[in-house]
Computed example of a mutant assay.
Amino acid sequence: MLIFLDYFLLFFHIALTAFNALGWAFERTRKAHLILILLTLASWTVLSPYFGWGYCPFTDWHWQVKRALGEGPLPGSFIKYCLDGCTGWDSDPVTVTYYTAVIGVVVFLLSCGVNWRAWRKSHHTQSSEIA
């Protein structure tokens, strides 16, 4: 069961990360993306006094499974884990955290922008239909 959970969390977390990075770009997923990126940024910041900067509950759960499987030591960041695993590097955790945060903020701003533009367009269309 632990092996199944390890693979499930790996693929789920990769999909979640990809959606966080790209979900704003597709009209059908923009609202869901805005909610998810807000939850992600809240996890990184609001929970940071309790768990540390950039806390992600999915990484925490995944690392618990990996430790139960005897894996370790594990980095503090899922992004570093994937980057190092794909490249064979031992990337600097501070640099990875910095770029992850910058990309997260940029993606949040993009999501706000496209959602605001869609909201304005729909409200402008409704108000012109009423008049």
Rank of each mutant, 00 (worst) to 15 (best):
34 L>V: 04
29 T>Q: 02
122 S>L: 04
4 F>Q: 05
125 T>D: 07
47 L>G: 00
82 C>K: 00
86 C>A: 15
34 L>W: 13
107 V>E: 06
31 K>Q: 10
128 S>D: 05
119 W>P: 04
121 K>I: 00
16 L>I: 05
44 W>Y: 15
62 H>M: 06
13 H>M: 03
127 S>W: 10
7 Y>A: 11
123 H>L: 14
111 S>T: 13
11 F>T: 10
76 G>Y: 00
96 V>F: 02
5 L>C: 13
32 A>E: 08
83 L>E: 01
85 G>Y: 00
84 D>I: 10
91 S>W: 03
113 G>A: 08
9 L>D: 08
128 S>T: 15
66 K>Q: 14
5 L>K: 07
38 L>R: 02
98 Y>G: 02
63 W>V: 02
34 L>G: 12
53 W>D: 13
7 Y>L: 04
34 L>I: 08
47 L>D: 06
39 L>K: 04
65 V>A: 00
125 T>R: 07
63 W>G: 00
26 F>C: 10
2 L>I: 03
51 F>A: 11
50 Y>V: 11
108 F>L: 14
60 D>A: 15
80 K>L: 11
76 G>Q: 04
15 A>P: 08
27 E>L: 10
4 F>R: 09
38 L>S: 15
25 A>L: 14
95 T>V: 15
69 L>A: 09
30 R>S: 11
52 G>A: 09
67 R>W: 05
16 L>E: 14
48 S>E: 01
78 F>A: 08
16 L>F: 12
107 V>L: 07
74 L>G: 00
72 G>S: 06
117 R>L: 06
109 L>W: 07
99 Y>H: 13
80 K>P: 03
84 D>P: 06
87 T>D: 08
79 I>L: 10
94 V>Y: 13
109 L>I: 13
9 L>I: 05
1 M>V: 11
68 A>M: 13
60 D>W: 09
28 R>S: 15
122 S>A: 15
83 L>N: 00
28 R>N: 13
